[in-house]
Amino acid sequence: MSIKLEHINYIYGEGSASPIHATNDVSLEIKDGEFIGLMGHTGSGKSTLIQHLNGLIRPTSGNIYYNGKNTSDEDFSMKELRSKVGLVFQYPEHQLFEVTVFDDVCFGPKNLGLEKKEIEERAKHALQLVGLDESYYERSPFELSGGQKRRVAIAGVLAMDPEILILDEPTAGLDPKGRDEILDAIKLLHKEKNITIILVSHSMEDIAKYAQRIIVMDKGKVKFDGTPKEVFRHYKELEQIGLAAPQVTYIVHQLKEKGWNISTDITTVEEAKREILTIWKNRKNS
């Protein structure tokens, strides 16, 4: 299950007074089981890019290959693609519409034309994955709290049983507890079911903590593509395009300037803690 993008261009409002070139010659390959963090400031083309991945928008020019098959071929089944690539939009709780939580989660699998038993099993499983127990099943999605609504909405996509899950800022507007719950659930999915995850986020800490590969978008182009360590090494360039590195990266850079013999490739608090403790121990011993 791989997706390959070749020279993707997308232009909004072609022929109008102000057309917008949202993605500009983007080429990427997304492999099985990757956990990708997608970054970029507002208007850099992230949202446009992820909508290409499940066929919601077609590129103005360029090709998308899904398991080697070209998605712009006549006989290509968009429905199948959408069932394999789950997309959770920003503020997904705004898409809830059913009378009960359970029915809403069933909407996706129902559209796949599955049998009733299978639909219910998938819905139950999905709700369990996002941490909502049976007491929520018969409640109205509109009377839940913001974080709970969001989890219902994510469950609605998970119930489609996707092989690739794309989340557009799934933690925007949530409190720290809600944020950790959702991110941990996503991590668990990635680990246990080996789902490919693409996480769009503005939080460098979250991306550094969870992602194995980072893609940075700027003005519709891919600016950086690599492991967190590789990408955050360019922290000065990241700042220029309105982004930043995780805070610990700045701390270790400053420590290095103060004469510490510390690696500057550190991106998470855990790593920093380990590194600093080792240095302390060595100092004491010597």
């Binding site: 499940n54 919601l56 429905k79 959408r82 997309l87 939009f89 898409q95 909407f107 559209n111 489609m160």
Partner: peptide, 12 residues
């Protein structure tokens, strides 16, 4: 936006 979100869930 909502149309796309529901299409992503297989709505037709």
């Amino acid at each position: 936006k909502i149309m796309k979100a529901q299409m992503a869930r297989g709505a037709d």
